[in-house]
């Protein structure tokens, strides 16, 4: 039994080039819209005929998009490293003691609303980008930890036994059996984490980070719907692009 074959069974038999068509389309649309928002002035004029300025110009959309992706990217990357690493650590014999606490913490923590986590990070860390990255990291950790634990826990003990019987070391069992088998569940956790973080990062505009939430907040404050639509469109597109990437990554087992 080649360990790779365990995973191969789950992957949908669509050719790779075709599979990435949808995410690519969303991505190109996102880039085109960020670059060419100014060209659509006539359209936003229809939405807001009376205001002087219909295109948000306090910062370029590309820069805002970049900052948004940057913040979410850094936080998510750290969350994946810490979350998967932590979950692996507490499922090893040496860390087993911490397993009940960590899994309970991960499920209790999920009931904390993301806004509240963000709001609590600011008194602790001040304004700016740092509290957002920390808040997103903390909040993003939970679904990843929870799903990694569930994924590793859900593996049939017989499979484990067989792998050990074949003479695999503990490290090999982890890399070649446990992680590939748990991958779909882990990826589902990362997907939830990143999607929620894209939405929560937009709220960062209220604590002084500049990102795609900025036009929305500015629009709400000034009563300028065109700004809101621009921010909302780009955040929505970013969320859908990322989500569709994960949809391709994630094998078919889905409710």
């Amino acid at each position: 039994m080649k360990p790779g074959s365990l995973l191969a069974r789950h992957v949908a038999p669509v050719p790779t080039s075709r599979r990435w068509l949808v995410p690519m389309a969303w991505f190109i649309l996102l880039l085109m819209l960020s670059a060419g928002m100014g060209q659509l002035e006539w359209l936003f004029r229809l939405v807001e005929p009376d205001v002087r300025e219909v295109i948000y110009r306090r910062a370029g959309f590309f820069a805002l998009l970049g900052q948004h992706v940057m913040v979410v990217g850094v936080a998510s990357l750290l969350a994946v490293l810490l979350g998967v690493g932590g979950a692996i650590a507490v499922t090893r014999p040496a860390g087993r003691d911490f397993l009940p606490l960590v899994s309970q913490l991960a499920s209790i923590g999920q009931t904390f609303p993301p806004v509240a986590v963000l709001a609590l990070a600011v008194p602790a860390l001040g304004f700016g980008t740092l509290p957002i990255v920390v808040a997103l990291l903390l909040y993003g950790l939970l679904p990843i930890v929870r799903n990694t634990l569930a994924g590793i826990d859900g593996i049939d003990p017989d499979v484990h036994e067989a792998a050990r019987g074949m003479g695999m070391t503990a490290g090999e069992v982890l890399r070649q059996v446990e992680l590939p088998l748990a991958a779909p569940v882990i990826i589902a956790g990362i997907r939830t984490s990143v999607t929620v973080n894209i939405a929560t990062a937009a709220l960062g505009a209220t604590v002084g980070a500049s990102n795609l939430g900025d036009p929305i907040i500015a629009g709400i404050v000034n009563g300028n719907t065109a700004y809101i639509v621009q921010g909302a469109l780009l955040i929505g597109l970013l969320a859908i692009t990322v989500d569709s990437v994960f949809e391709r990554l994630q094998p078919a087992s889905q409710a």
Binding site: I216, I228, A232, I235, G236, A239, I240
Partner: peptide, 20 residues
Amino acid sequence: NFLQTIPSLALFGLLLAPLA
């Protein structure tokens, strides 16, 4: 599913105009 991926701030914002 599609609705759930749209960030809350964006959806709140987008509903402003039609409801107004």
